[in-house]
Amino acid sequence: MITMDQYEYIRTAHRVYEKSIRQIQKETGHSRVTIRKVLQGEFPEYKRRSTQAYPVLEKHRETIWNWLKEDRENPKKQRHTARRIYTRLVEEEGYTGSEVTVRRHVRQVKAKEGMDTSGAFLILEPECGKEADWGEALAIVQGIRTPFHFFCMRPRFSGKPFVRAYPCEKQQAFFDAHVHAFDFFGGVFPTLVYDNLKSAVEKVLTGRNRIEQDAFRRLKAYYSFEARFCNPGSANEKGGKA
């Protein structure tokens, strides 16, 4: 009988990682008939265990916990995802278990420790344009842990990003980043989507109305592009992460 771990792995491998039935058959040893039944939604009856056993992951649980604790001191965009934790375990710790097991364990730890604060949202069909935003990261410069700011512009369709680091997020750096980004992409998209950055927005009005900074309006006029802004606190409306 197929287990729930195997059931979840088969569906994730096919639907998320786009593995073929033949490839899943080689990895799991299950017949194609069984795999097709799983993909159609059929699953065996099972009893939920009161505690989750992790025979392969057990010796790595402390390492995972240490990484998650360190993340509390890091910028949000530089923290570990479950995928990153799995990759590091394989490359650095010799982990031989499945990614599904790691994802489940990380989810449980975050929920227990109050680390899981993410909300749910729907990604809308993107228009032809680019997203632009600032981010933060830490780097080791001459042996010193140093924070810096990076500007990222990313086309919605290709997802190929342009990233450039700066010591601050002042308007001069903001405009300089645009110039280099347009040169990198070989042109200017008709629409750019932003959060309500101070470098671009002087005042947020009702709805999507904004009073833009004069210097930013000049930049727009020079390069002939339109700016659209997300609602306050709703960066997910951009449809992706810059």
Rank of each mutant, 00 (worst) to 15 (best):
T3Q: 10
M4Q: 14
T12F: 07
T12Q: 08
Q25F: 00
H30P: 01
S31D: 11
V33S: 14
I35S: 04
R36V: 15
K37M: 06
V38W: 04
V38Q: 09
L39P: 01
E42S: 10
P44Y: 07
K47F: 11
T51D: 02
T51Q: 15
E58I: 01
K59W: 01
K59E: 12
K59V: 07
E62H: 13
D71G: 04
Q78Y: 08
Q78E: 12
H80Q: 00
R83P: 03
R84Q: 10
R84M: 08
I85R: 07
T87D: 14
T87P: 01
R88C: 13
E92W: 05
E93A: 07
T101K: 09
T101I: 11
R103G: 13
R107W: 14
A111V: 02
K112Y: 07
G114M: 05
T117K: 08
S118E: 10
G119T: 13
F121K: 06
L124W: 09
E127Q: 10
E127Y: 15
G129L: 02
E131C: 13
E136I: 05
T146P: 04
P147L: 11
F148T: 06
F151W: 11
R156V: 12
F157V: 11
K160I: 09
A165H: 09
Y166Q: 04
P167H: 06
P167Q: 07
E169S: 04
D176A: 14
H180Q: 14
F182C: 06
F184K: 05
F185V: 04
V188F: 09
V188A: 10
V188K: 09
F189W: 15
T191R: 15
T191Y: 13
V193R: 12
S199E: 15
V201W: 01
V201N: 02
T206K: 13
E212N: 04
D214V: 07
D214P: 09
F216E: 00
R218I: 03
L219S: 03
L219K: 08
F225E: 13
S234E: 11
S234V: 03
